[in-house]
Amino acid sequence: MKKIVAIALLVFIGALLFTGIYAIDGFPKYGEAKVADRVSEGYIMKNVTEANTDVVYGVSTNLETGSANYVTSIVVNYRSFDTLGEVTVLFVSSLGISLLLGGFSGKLRNRCKANFILRMGSKVVFPLIIMTGVYIFIHGHLSPGGGFPGGSMIASAILLLYLSDEKFRVNIENFKKTESTAGSLYVIIGLLGLVISNYFLSNFINTGTVGALLSAGIIPIIYVLVGLKVGSELTGVITDFLKEEVE
């Protein structure tokens, strides 16, 4: 009975969604979005206030953000304040997890013993995963990726070590120190922007040529900090989840 009511309700909501969304004036059909009419046009031309000029890879210099990856330039430069808030949300949720589970001291008892292939293979794969993660967040302004996937990749490398070795424990104190240092440096860079060019988190370093490794001003610095912060935070979460209450 309950399921029938739920299905009827959902058919009603679905019909409303399917007819309502496409009746909105200006809502694009799938694959027919007009980027030129949206606010993103200014982000693509890397100039949100003045008339548009063409940006050429490897030639244009001293733009608003010198990042070749447009998603990065939005996440870390134009909407960097959002990202600061988002990193704070992640910090609060990891704080809640360590409040709920961090008091336990035992290890999970039901884990199976790792087999030979996992034990030997993890030693080979672990440095490669760490290197890929660091590469991804250092090149966040040139190629797909950035601080969030890079940091998660580092956390998953630590997860691999946990799975392959039952006695393995990370020194969680050092991870907490790394995380708080990275978070504080993010805020300090924002305040430096406030002092130097009058608004919070402004890009106060010369942005260089589009496509060079040393370009885009504060974007690579902030993305490395975000990568370190996310990686150490998720490592802390995984470490908390591997604990169990001892009776």
């Binding site: 998660s152 998953s156 998720l234």
Partner: peptide
């Protein structure tokens, strides 16, 4: 970008 993030987080962690 979203595909890489979802591959690491959504199906891994």
């Amino acid at each position: 970008d979203v595909a890489i993030t979802e591959a690491v987080i959504g199906s891994g962690l």
